[in-house]
Amino acid sequence: TAVTSPEQYIKHPLQHRWALWYFKNDKSKSWTENLRLISKFDTVEDFWALYNHIQQPSKLGFGCDYCLFKDGIKPMWEDDRNKLGGRWLMTLSKQQRHNDLDRYWMETLLCLIGESFDEASEDVCGAVVNVRPKGDKISIWTGNCQNRDAIMTIGQQYKERLSIPIKTLIGYQSHDDTSSKSGSTTKNMYSV
């Protein structure tokens, strides 16, 4: 039976083209030399082909990151589309590397490529997972830290999506505050 519907041949296009980056901390190289573009995709099928092909975050070495950003936005504060923005930041405990890290990262990716935040998805620039000895971090970056409504929509829906307990607060920090901080903590502009 060769007759099939066209849907079986056409990949499902995403709203945006996305770029997946990998950062490996090699102290003999510069920060930008350590940041590598892995691949870009713009369909559901191509996303899974890539996702299924690469290591889960929990298998990465300390100091490594994955970054998923909309095509054209570099995963760094200095990019024009990031510099006025900030991030919803989740800091995970050491135990959560085993229990939650990979699951949270996959949910984060699905939120981004599926445009889960409705109109607020336009504010999303990308997401980052940092694998660190003290505790891993996952963040969603948005383009303008003054866009309160969009940021709160993203934060509330994201927290719900990850089934974070209501009592556990997650915070949003501007990149300006993060980059200029002197101590180990950055103040939250918003929290949910």
Binding site: Y9, I10, K11, H12, P13, L14, Q15, V44, E45, F47, W48, A49, Y51, N52, E107, L110, I113, G114, E115, S116, D118, S121, R161
Partner: peptide
């Protein structure tokens, strides 16, 4: 309109054979 895909829809494609 915006191309939105919910979680279950996206997950449904994770282990599909690659398309042409």
């Amino acid at each position: 309109g915006k191309r939105q895909y919910d979680r279950d829809f996206l997950l449904g494609f994770q282990f599909m054979p690659a398309c042409v």
